[in-house]
Amino acid sequence: MNIFIFTGGEAPSPETAKPFFEKCKPDYVIAADSGLETLDLYAEAFGEDFAPNLILGDMDSLKNLSLLEKYKNAKRELFPSDKDFTDTELALSTAREIGKTASVVLVGGNGGCLDHLISIYDSFSEDFHADVWLCVNQAVYFLAEKNRRKFLICSLKTEFQFRALQIILTIPLLRRKDLSGTVLEKKEWQVFQIEFPKKIFCIKIRLNFLQKKDLF
C-alpha cells in the first residue's frame, strides 16, 4: 500500500516528479493544510488518482479555500492552530495508523517556516517517519539499519536515468525526550539553546511545539 502525503512549503513540480509517479501510484492520499494546493496541481496533471482521501490540519496556511469545496467528498480532520504537532507530523502519524507497513511518500515541505522543516527532520527519529521525501529537486530515501538511520539522497533530474547521486548520509537523530536545553527567553515563542553532541544550536521554537517536559 502506498500512502502519499502532500504538505505545505516548496515541492517538486508535477513535471519534475512525473518519472517517480509513473512507477509509484497512490492507494491513499492525504493533504495537510496548504499541501492541498500542491495536491490540486498534481490532480490536474495526473488525474483522479491524486484526489485526496483525507484533508487534515488547522487550515491556517491554505489560501485557496475553494479547494475545500472542490474536494468536499474527502474526509476532513480539523485541528486547532495551537497544538503540539505540526500538520505534517499529524499527517505522518495518521498514515502509519492507516497502514503500519505501508510505504509513505511525503511530497513538499521545503522552504517555508524553519520549525516545520525541523519537525520533518525530527520525524525521522520517530516510528511514523516517511519512507520517501520528495523535495524540490531531490528525493530523500530513508534506509533503516538497526540502530543507525541513513538516507539516500538522489537528484530527481537524474534518478530515473539510473545516474543517481549515490550520496549516503549518516545523520544522528535524537528523539525529543533526549534533548536538553535552557530557556533563553520567556515569551510565546521561546528561544531554547538546544545541546546536541559536540554541537550547540540556538533555534526558535513555539512553546506548544516542544513542551517543557520534552526538553528537561
Rank of each mutant, 00 (worst) to 15 (best):
N2Y: 13
I3C: 01
F4N: 00
T7H: 00
G9L: 04
A11F: 11
A11Q: 04
Y28R: 04
I30E: 01
I30N: 02
A31Q: 01
G35Y: 01
E37G: 01
T38G: 02
D40N: 13
D40Q: 01
L41C: 09
L41Q: 12
A43T: 09
A43D: 02
G47C: 07
D49A: 14
A51S: 14
P52D: 04
M59H: 02
K63R: 14
N64Y: 08
Y71D: 05
K72G: 08
S81N: 07
S81A: 11
F85A: 11
T86H: 06
T88F: 05
T88N: 07
E89Y: 06
L92H: 03
T94I: 03
R96Y: 10
G99C: 02
K100F: 07
T101H: 08
V104Y: 04
G111A: 06
C113W: 11
C113M: 10
L114C: 07
D115W: 10
I118E: 07
I120V: 15
D122V: 05
S123F: 02
F124A: 08
S125Y: 04
E126P: 00
A130N: 06
D131Q: 10
V132E: 08
W133M: 09
L134A: 05
Q138D: 13
V140I: 15
Y141A: 00
K146A: 12
L152A: 14
I153W: 02
F162P: 01
A164F: 02
L169D: 12
P172Q: 08
L173M: 13
G181L: 04
F192Y: 15
E195I: 12
E195V: 11
F196V: 13
K199P: 00
I200N: 12
I200V: 14
C202E: 15
C202Q: 15
I203D: 03
I203T: 08
I205W: 10
I205L: 15
N208M: 08
F209Q: 11
Q211N: 13
K213L: 05
D214L: 10
D214W: 06
